[in-house]
């Protein structure tokens, strides 16, 4: 019992108030009268935080001035600051982090917030929603990755074996975060677009490979996808048609459609347009079965149906092999004219 109590106490002592590591105490970060807008800090963010977390040279200066112990070893995110995908340009560390630290948060279900993030958040996604509340995953989407809720039922044949199931919770930071696993964890920066841990091409016209869609393949088995275990025309679209996962799916949620499909969204207007009847719809007709009425990669899907037992009206070979990038591909071409 004492050991359990000790663990709780240790968890409740956050690093920034560990005066052994920070002999400068409050003064390491604060002044009585800071610059306007900063909470009693002499410089803005992220410079304030980078004085200790921004590389050896800056840290050495803080140690020299007696603010920080030489043995403190704070996380160094200086390499992240040079990455092209920076979380809001690291303008506000305090948007996510509680500088004074927080007590160990309760874990009710799913996954809890990361250490050092704000106390008011019970779950990590709540922290993210503070800025990204407009994301469809925070609305009431028809389908979603299991960040806020778990699906009531479902069949997910592409999930990798080894623990992931339809009942597995997902954190935002499972997909988003630093691209180099040797660097401090955290959604600070990545060499990949959208601050993803792995590469994920969103433009069409890319040759399919394990690395082209590495982010999706981190959880979804590539072999299963390409063997059409979930959607009977995955290989046709992804390999032959060089269509990106993003073109049909939203990685967060499907606002109105199942399977995280986004083909009705305005965000896909650059690549998906109405069919010749003016329809831009997807209709689920059964388990692993549906009907597409839209025009994509120049092909009019005029109510095309698919399903595990339903052969496509058109032959797969009619889907053209794309050689150009999405922005070069004409959309809504009416070949009957």
């Amino acid at each position: 019992m004492p050991s359990i109590l000790m663990l709780v106490l240790l968890a409740a002592v956050p690093g920034h108030r560990d005066w052994g590591k920070i002999p400068g105490q409050c003064e390491a970060c604060h002044v009585g009268h800071g610059i306007p807008g900063m909470k009693m800090a002499p410089v803005g963010e992220p410079d304030l935080c980078l004085r200790c977390h921004g590389g050896a040279a800056r840290l050495t200066e803080m140690v020299k001035q007696g603010y920080v112990s030489a043995s403190a070893a704070p996380q160094d995110i200086s390499r992240e600051t040079a990455m092209p995908s920076l979380h809001d340009n690291l303008k506000s560390c305090s948007a996510c982090h509680a500088g004074h630290g927080i007590a160990a948060p309760p874990y009710i279900s799913g996954k809890g917030p990361k250490p050092g993030t704000k106390r008011t958040n019970q779950f990590e996604y709540e922290l993210c929603a503070g800025c990204h509340g407009g994301n469809p995953i925070f609305q009431s989407p028809a389908s979603f990755h299991s960040v806020r809720t778990l699906p009531k039922s479902g069949f997910f044949p592409s999930l990798k074996s080894g623990g992931m199931t339809a009942r597995t919770w997902i954190n935002c930071s499972d997909c988003h975060g630093v691209s180099d696993a040797s660097l401090p964890r955290g959604v600070h920066a990545s060499v990949n677009a959208h601050l993803l841990k792995f590469n994920d091409q969103t433009l069409d016209g890319q040759a399919e490979s394990a690395s082209t869609y590495a982010q999706c393949y981190a959880c979804h088995d590539r072999n299963s996808i390409l063997q059409n275990e979930s959607f009977s025309l995955h290989q046709t679209h992804i390999v032959n048609g060089m269509t990106s996962c993003y073109s049909c799916h939203d990685s967060h949620a499907g606002r109105t459609l199942p399977h995280l499909l986004a083909i009705e969204d305005e965000s896909r207007n650059d690549r998906i347009s109405p069919d010749l009847h003016g329809r831009k719809t997807y209709t689920q007709t059964g388990n692993l079965a549906g009907v597409c009425s839209l025009t994509c990669h120049g092909v009019n899907h005029d109510g095309w149906a698919y399903g595990p037992k339903t052969s496509l009206r058109k032959q797969e070979a009619t889907v053209p092999v794309l050689k150009r990038r999405a922005q070069d591909i004409p959309v809504a071409t009416d070949k009957r004219k």
Binding site: R17, W19, G24, Q25, C26, E27, H30, V31
Partner: peptide, 13 residues
């Protein structure tokens, strides 16, 4: 004498 000594009167560490 020390900056933090004042802070810590009201804000315990």
């Amino acid at each position: 004498p020390k900056f933090s000594e004042v802070c810590l009167v009201c804000h315990p560490s």
